[in-house]
Write a protein that binds this DNA or RNA. Sequence first.
DNA 1: GATTTCCTTTGACATAGGTCAAATAGTGTT
DNA 2: AACACTATTTGACCTATGTCAAAGGAAATC
Lengths: 186, 186
Amino acid sequence: MNISDFLSSIVPFTAAELKDILVHFKKESVPKNHTLVRQGEICKTLYFIEKGMGRSYYLNENGKEITQWFFGIGKFMSSVDSFFQQSPSLYYLEVLEDATLYSISKEDIDQLFAKYPKMEKMGRLVTIEMLTRVVNKLNAIQFQTAKERYDYMLTEFPDIAYHVPLGHIASYLGMSQETLSRIRKG
Amino acid sequence: MNISDFLSSIVPFTAAELKDILVHFKKESVPKNHTLVRQGEICKTLYFIEKGMGRSYYLNENGKEITQWFFGIGKFMSSVDSFFQQSPSLYYLEVLEDATLYSISKEDIDQLFAKYPKMEKMGRLVTIEMLTRVVNKLNAIQFQTAKERYDYMLTEFPDIAYHVPLGHIASYLGMSQETLSRIRKG
DNA sequence: GATTTCCTTTGACATAGGTCAAATAGTGTT
DNA sequence: AACACTATTTGACCTATGTCAAAGGAAATC
């Protein structure tokens, strides 16, 4: 999914607007396993994933990686809180396979928000969509059995579920790797 | 918390803008236990709580009420998804004590979004704040023990925790009423 | 293609928190 | 004050899922 198509699909920008907006995004190629942001750093960049996928995770008290979210093709990826509040990130952000990203800085996107109300609208709509997804996950985690949560994962991230290590998914779903392994068998 | 103070605290509206915006909000007094939206209905109104508190909940397979969120003084309350997508609400929305609300319709707020980029910005910021709160709850539910979740509740909704029935809080925290009762004792 | 390292599966056992049922305490209403 | 209703607490028991440990598989590196 191309970033320009993506933006147009949310809000009808004119060609001229799109051109002016895209100038602020930098295309980057990032290799598998590259870390974009570390826990404690301020996330200075918002990424759009044209190709590849990523995840956010943190280290719990025992130093174990806990996946917080997956980011697939055609989505924005960042440590949302850290980026928008410019506060230390609670999460690591990493790329799970070779990826093509478009990146934009906080200053630049704020400038775009200020210049184009449509851009502000885009931001609001994308955030609401994210909110809906997080609420869905919350419901899955709170009220569903381990098996049901895995099924939720398959519908929410069909492309991702089979391409990342089992442990990443297990921690994302709030269950042990062993349990997930048994479920997959089942 | 007054709605005009609230709006000003997020984005610096001019007096004239504020006046024009506030015209679209209708003040309402709503009695305790009043239901604002039912599961399956389209949520046509966004509410701002000046006084009182509310919650959203749904009925699970066994017909049990599961609290999904609490809304306190100085917050917007609605079935977010339903309101913004104008889709059937997954939740009931009810007022937990006599309340004073300011309500606005979808058409009116869309008009305001279109007229005032600052309003669009306000919407984006409020949504991001909500997103952060939901992520916090998600972390609490996913990784904390029942006891820790209750502590999270006390910091997130200090005003609410002591004023609503135990069962509402228990279902919100994803535990049985009995467990919460035992925790409160402990 | 051998070796090292990482990832997944399997088994045995432990436990937080669920469910059910009954008792107790509060609250509001005539 | 007595009644009805609702909310909370307590006890006994149960189960899904966690933890620990060890064995297999895959895949990356030399």
